[in-house]
Design a protein around this nucleic acid. Sequence first.
DNA 1: GCTACAAATGAAAAGAATTATCATTTATAT
DNA 2: ATATAAATGATAATTCTTTTCATTTGTAGC
Lengths: 143, 143
Amino acid sequence: MRLSEKKITTALKRHGYKLTPQRRAVIGAIASSPDHLTPAALYQKVRQDHPTIGLATIYRTLEILAKLELICELHAGGSCRSYTIAAPGHHHHLICADCGEVIDFSGHYLTELEERLCRETGFEIEGHLLEFIGRCQSCQQNA
Amino acid sequence: MRLSEKKITTALKRHGYKLTPQRRAVIGAIASSPDHLTPAALYQKVRQDHPTIGLATIYRTLEILAKLELICELHAGGSCRSYTIAAPGHHHHLICADCGEVIDFSGHYLTELEERLCRETGFEIEGHLLEFIGRCQSCQQNA
DNA sequence: GCTACAAATGAAAAGAATTATCATTTATAT
DNA sequence: ATATAAATGATAATTCTTTTCATTTGTAGC
């Protein structure tokens, strides 16, 4: 079950944002698509009904919707990246949202889940990305 | 335990890549840093010892090392993003590396792990990112 | 050690993605 | 209806990454 357009517009108003035709169009386009859309793809889609909308408005609207957690962000390749030396064997990351500290932890928590996904979806799974975001102890104290 | 510089250079040669001073410098910089480094940060660091290195070489080297899985990539905010409407309650993604299809799945597989990480690291955990990468059935057939 | 040659490099340009600026328009509370 | 702050579109500016290309260099084979 996904959030309805109605709930999203209500939430926007509740947080003091104006309900403009452009925002309605962006929300409509996201809500009516089963796929994940990049900002550029969304721009194309919205322009079919709303040819004068600017790309900046798309970005601004996405920023608000993501902040309010009304839409969900997917990371898949591309630019937001940093690197560290690989550890043999699997590990995952725990990242501090304030200071950027990264703690690695290892383990095989996902094997069972991975097998189930294979069975149910027919995917051949190559890898996964597991990251926790939070706040480290010293950043908690500084806040 | 992390991969040693030695193992990385050996693996490079084994795959037919030349061992240039620039590549050594990049590998040395990554291997000697406990943190995750962005391409730009790495560039700064390498230039201390190797002032003439070009940023393109950093990118090229990172690309090779990541392809050989000698370094490990971290995604944390930033640009590589696409969006879909939020589902109430948690869900995760299964992404086809070939066609980009995304399947959402939900569940609470990580609660226990999250609690353990809290206890052991003192982090206050806000959220997480869990994505599986693989190949969907039709892309497996086309390959 | 020399040589040949493909591979790698640095510099610079090009391209892609995102954000900021600013004058104009508009949603909304009154 | 009106006033006002917020939002918009166009454009410029940034930032990040990739490409191009002439030059340099690592390495296999002698």
